[in-house]
């Protein structure tokens, strides 16, 4: 059942969900991405990430806010959540492509997850506030975050 769901997400429907939506007014169009073997091998839009910027994004409340749930080696922000697995060595456990999919849309891996999809088709949202009707992160920000996660070993 779960496997079927994961397959359903990861196969053909992905492009429909996350690539082909009409761009929202005044918002970056959502770039297409393709997941295979629970990874997105190619950087979004062929963009290059910057690990230092990624480190800022994961801590910023209004951006990634990843430390709301995960512990990360960012001591200048003392308050990290404990509800999700610590990420201090996640770069040793997962490849860049696997990390990218988890940031883009963890629901492909686990449809029941609490973790927000940071780069999925906003048409999937239910009752989004009009101020938050785009993707949570931009494609560049996703790549910055991935570049940072890769360094966590």
């Amino acid at each position: 059942m779960v496997q079927a769901l994961a397959m359903k997400y990861s196969a053909s429907t992905l492009l429909l969900y996350c690539g082909l939506s009409a761009p929202l007014a005044a918002q970056e169009p959502v770039l297409p991405w393709h997941a295979e073997n629970f990874a997105i091998a190619q950087p979004l839009g062929g963009l290059r990430g910057d690990a230092a910027r990624g480190r800022e994004i994961v801590a910023a409340r209004a951006r990634g806010n990843c430390i709301a749930c995960h512990q990360m080696p960012i001591p200048e922000h003392p308050m990290h959540g404990t509800l999700a697995p610590p990420l201090s060595d996640v770069g040793a456990r997962l490849s860049a492509g696997e990390l990218r999919l988890r940031v883009v849309d963890q629901k492909v891996v686990n449809p029941e997850t609490i973790m927000p999809a940071f780069y999925c088709d906003p048409a999937r949202y239910n009752r989004p506030h009009p101020d938050f009707s785009g993707t949570i992160l931009s494609a560049q920000e996703v790549e910055d975050v991935v570049a940072y996660l890769v360094t966590l070993k």
Binding site: I114, P116, H129, I136
Partner: peptide, 12 residues
Amino acid sequence: RRIGQLDMSCQH
């Protein structure tokens, strides 16, 4: 029901 951009529900 999952709601909003963060797509979580109260039960989460």
